[in-house]
């Protein structure tokens, strides 16, 4: 009956920090938690802020992978092992992969983190997976060894410093022409996801996308993270291609901290 208590902040001290790339760190946190791949937790840094993060590990301990890009992540990057963090969650709707035998995963940059546990779950179900990952440059490549263990990894770099040079949707086009998939999964910069969604429509391929919006409450109350009729915290962060094809805001608009609607540049 104590439905409120499950949302209370849980202590999640930093057990281990790994520098993944010059701009990305993974933090292993001392808290036990189960979550579906794609779900997220709210991570609280006392007296700083609280932000949503996807999980790259669950179980007796959890792990988040963070790209430095603003005030909160800069503060997070200064923390040491043993530092205090609080979490609540898991929240949201994760990926679904029931009956998927052959999947294509498309990741852009830090979006790879949201897909890491999914590819491992697919592998456990003996699905064959083509994992297309797009990074700026060689030094920013994430989780190469971990993905190669369970999927056919195709790395694209924008500057050509590793793998194929180019832009992920162009590469994906050739891929989709040659292969038939049960489902595609994608997470990355929104404008890239829009291109991937267009390809899914063209090839009549079912897909799921992990999307991002500015988030405050994470429990469906404040309405801040809305994307058309959906709330990313509750109906997402994983939304289906059917949902996003109906969207008027995906790739076009998002909402500022004030709730003001602005165009995506």
């Amino acid at each position: 009956m104590n439905e409120f208590a499950k949302h209370k902040i849980k202590e999640a001290r930093i057990l281990k920090i790994e520098q993944e790339t010059p701009t990305v760190k993974t933090f292993e946190l001392g808290v036990s938690l189960d979550a579906v791949p794609g779900q997220f937790v709210m991570v609280w840094l006392p007296r700083v802020a609280e932000k949503p993060f996807t999980l790259i590990k669950t179980g007796n301990t959890i792990a988040i992978t963070v790209k430095k890009r603003g005030g909160f992540t800069e503060k997070l990057f200064q923390l040491k092992e043993g530092s205090y963090l609080g979490i609540r969650g898991p929240y949201g709707k994760g990926f679904t992969w029931n009956g998927v035998k052959k999947a294509c995963i498309v990741a852009g940059g830090i979006g790879t983190a949201a897909l890491l546990r999914l590819v491992e779950e697919l592998a456990k179900n003996k699905a064959s997976v083509d994992f297309v990952a797009d990074f700026k440059t060689k030094s920013e490549i994430l989780f190469k060894e971990r993905i190669e263990k369970v999927a056919n990894l195709h790395i694209i770099t924008e500057d050509g410093s590793f793998g194929t040079k180019g832009f992920c949707p162009d590469f994906l086009m050739g891929f989709l022409k040659k292969n038939e998939y049960d489902k595609l999964y994608c997470c990355g910069p929104e404008l890239m996801m829009v291109k991937v969604l267009e390809l899914c429509k063209k090839f009549d391929l079912k897909a799921e996308f992990a999307v991002e919006r500015y988030m405050k409450c994470a429990v469906g109350l404040c309405g801040q993270c809305c994307l058309d009729e959906w709330l990313v915290c509750r109906d997402g962060p994983v939304l289906s291609s059917e949902q996003l094809l109906k969207s008027k805001e995906f790739g076009k608009f998002y909402y500022l901290k004030s709730g003001k609607k602005v165009a995506i540049q």
């Binding site: 208590a5 902040i9 609280e50 405050k216 004030s258 003001k260």
Partner: peptide, 28 residues
């Protein structure tokens, strides 16, 4: 005027309910 409201966390839970302090964020 447009207001960004308070920083997160804007909500905090306890056993019998919730506290909120959004600070009247609104687009004006």
């Amino acid at each position: 005027e447009e207001r960004s409201g308070h920083e997160t966390p804007n909500i905090a839970f306890f056993e019998a309910g919730m506290l909120n302090a959004f600070g009247y964020c609104n687009p004006g």
